[in-house]
Amino acid sequence: MGFLEFKKVYKVYPAGVKALDNVNLSIEKGEFVFLWGATGAGKTTLMKLITREELPTSGEVWLERCKISSLEDRYLPILRRNLGVVFQDLKLVPHWTVFENLISPLLVLGVKKRDAHRLAEGILDLVHLQDKKHHKTEWLSGGEKQKLCLGRALIHRPHLVLADEPTGNLDGATALGLVGTLFEFSERSGATVIIATHSEKLVNRFPGRLVVLDKGKIIQS
């Protein structure tokens, strides 16, 4: 069994929208995956099944031999602490500083202040936000927020990184840089990375596996 498995997964939203239609997918540890598909194809839905923001209508989702589609609610914190997620809608707290948003996964893990500071410095360098450390997050530009979100997804060195449209607000060069950062992270730490995108350019620039979603169905993996 792979590191991450989708088995006959269907997701129908209460409104009746069929977002995922018999998805079968197996991803190995350390893989660098592009999840490619048009708007409304079901990319975000697929990610939400991994973070357990949503439950599948039927089928199973397995992560590291754990059936997360039937994980009890009280174990969700354990699942989520081990994920690094760049949310499509970012999920940053606007009135916190960049630093505060950045270290929130570390606080949840109970990392000591000193270590959190050290880790934060490294990540701020990585995403080029060193000079914005104490700025309020709402003052950041759209692209800077996305970089912050990426930093927050990596700071606790997760084994699985989910990046949902991480380059939406970025110019071409910065977008490449950001995906490059993710690629390097994956190479260096052995983490599995899944990037949802509709940009063909990005997909072609990196030697990753391509999974194509179309109207909730996987048509290439």
């Binding site: 081990n82 994920l83 893990l109």
Partner: peptide, 12 residues
């Protein structure tokens, strides 16, 4: 907002 973010970060 904060509570939602904390939940997503895996806070108990």
């Amino acid at each position: 907002t904060e509570i939602e973010v904390w939940n997503l970060m895996g806070a108990t």
